[in-house]
Simulated assay, not measured.
Amino acid sequence: MPHDDMSPPAARPGTAHPTWWRTPLVASAFGLPCLGLEYVWFRSEDGAGAFGGILYWAAGLLALAWLLPHRRSLRAPRMLAAGAGLGCALLPVLFALALGVALTAN
């Protein structure tokens, strides 16, 4: 069957999603500075301890969000990977803030 040039770009198989990069960019803009600060913070404390795995998961999920194919059908997995990576990157900071609030509440 010949390809119909009148069909919209989203209907053609194999076409790239034009704004695939927005979600990984937003997640990386917030997540990578946090990961850098956490790395420096944990390095000064002689290791990441229990949060070491979370830092690796965060970096891996943010990388996965960038490396997934740029098809519209993979928009949801890309958003999930970017959101989970950002959540993992923010987890140690949020835990430290919650612990600080709990200790000052007494």
Rank of each mutant, 00 (worst) to 15 (best):
L35E: 06
F51G: 00
A89R: 04
A89V: 12
H17M: 14
A50F: 06
G100V: 00
E45L: 13
G49V: 04
A65G: 10
G31M: 01
L74R: 12
A89N: 04
W66D: 04
T104Q: 08
P24Y: 08
L97P: 00
A58E: 02
A102C: 06
A84Y: 02
P33A: 09
L103N: 07
V26G: 04
L80M: 09
A98T: 04
D46G: 12
R78M: 14
P18S: 06
V93W: 08
A27M: 02
R43M: 10
Y56L: 14
W41P: 00
M1N: 12
R71C: 09
G31C: 02
P77V: 04
A58W: 04
D5W: 13
L35Q: 01
A76S: 13
H17G: 04
L91R: 00
I54D: 02
F95P: 00
A82F: 05
L61Q: 06
P24E: 07
P9F: 12
L86N: 01
L94F: 07
R71A: 15
G60F: 05
G53I: 02
E45Y: 03
P92K: 03
G31W: 01
G60V: 01
P69I: 10
L99Q: 12
L94S: 04
L67W: 07
A27R: 00
L94I: 11
